[in-house]
Design a protein around this nucleic acid. Structure first.
Lengths: 211, 211
DNA sequence: CGAAAAATACCTAAAAACCAGTAGAAAAAA
DNA sequence: TTTTTTCTACTGGTTTTTAGGTATTTTTCG
């Protein structure tokens, strides 16, 4: 149906997975495999010069996290279709990647049929999940009921330092800011996460995979 | 060299990985692939009736954990060689699997050469790690430098409640204890984890997989 | 049983975090 | 270029945690 085959890239840090996927997809009539990439940097570099239609993207990568990479790709190359192929089953991760522009989310244990279907759906512009992912989405776990709050750059930075056990005083010195400012950010973080203190904050951030 | 090829089974919950491995190994002269298994139960069942020489085993499986499965296999079928092929990089996991009788540990991102080498070593009876695993074993990462402190029952309980954002006051009421007692436990927890405050405490506990 | 470990509870005092606001400047988005 | 968001900083007061102890009572285990 398509005039050209889908130029497809696989981004996964495991050569074995790349091998397996290549093998599974090599007989697909509408797919042209253009290569496997083991980290975020190499695929970004490749995208600068070459056209890609479809990216099968893992979440766990050595350099960047797949969620962020997805956003970065979609921001720069709007038309590229990104399908997440990961074994992370956390609801927050699924939701986040879709918000970041992914066209679907499959677990690595999904069948070739599911993969085929999702690619077809993605090309048509809709979003597609593998069966298990649909389940994950439908029954949110207690901890993840609250959507991950979107943090500003500063907030992320300060959250990180708080997690390192630093006091507002110390953070202020490190960032050349008043400790009072840090306190404000602290307050805002607590509010955004809807928690009462750092203990809960760090727990929540961990459950939301922010570290 | 061998009169017979090594009857090799792959145990991994990801069909894609199984595919990839099959592909990578199908041209090996000394290996006869007898199949892929997606969980612990199916391989155990298979072992009851069929002879297997080598098992490539993942740690993360749907039904049992690969470390335990390894022990179970080695207990029942002494002669089977088990090679772990996983992407879990925690030192404790590597050590545990070896103690459970595995003949080696490779990360999924290791090369075919490494895999080949490890299989050869394992057949000879020695234990073999992929390069990265050797590194993990030799210089334990920051998080794991401190052995997970062994906590008492009370401490675990209180840690849990602290993680829920409860104050010493609240915890005291909940457990019918003086808040001062909770403070003491708090202090002891900080000391055991060698941290300065709850933020670090919760981070550390998370990294040590205590939640 | 006796010793060690765990759990309990207290004191004092300082440090840090938390609460409830306000508000101007800078940066980003509409 | 407005408008909105983010970042900055403050006031003033309260609560909680942390740091340095000590000390008695239970449990647990050799």
């Amino acid at each position: 149906m398509q005039p050209n085959k889908l130029k497809t890239a696989i981004v996964d840090d495991h050569p074995i997975v790349i091998e397996g996927l290549k093998n599974l997809l090599k007989n697909e009539s509408n797919i042209e495999l253009i290569g496997g990439f083991q980290d975020g940097e190499t695929i970004m570099k490749y995208l600068e010069s070459e056209k890609v239609d479809l990216i099968l993207l893992d979440i766990t990568l050595p350099d960047v996290n797949g969620m962020d990479l997805c956003l970065k790709i979609k921001k720069k190359y709007r038309s590229v279709i990104v399908l997440i192929l990961s074994n992370r089953t956390e609801r927050s991760i699924v939701v986040q990647t879709i918000q970041n522009g992914a066209s679907g989310y499959l677990l690595k244990n999904s069948s070739l049929d599911e993969l085929r279907l999702c690619i077809a759906e993605a090309v048509k512009g809709s979003i597609c999940y593998s069966k298990e992912v649909t389940e994950i989405l439908s029954r949110p776990s207690r901890n993840e009921l609250l959507a991950a709050p979107r943090l500003t750059k500063r907030e992320k930075q300060i959250l990180e330092l708080i997690a390192q056990g630093k006091t507002s005083q110390a953070i202020g010195e490190e960032l050349f800011l008043s400790p009072l400012t840090i306190d404000t950010h602290r307050k805002n973080l607590l509010q955004k996460f809807q928690v009462k203190n750092v203990a809960e904050l760090i727990m929540s951030a961990n459950q939301q995979h922010l570290f």
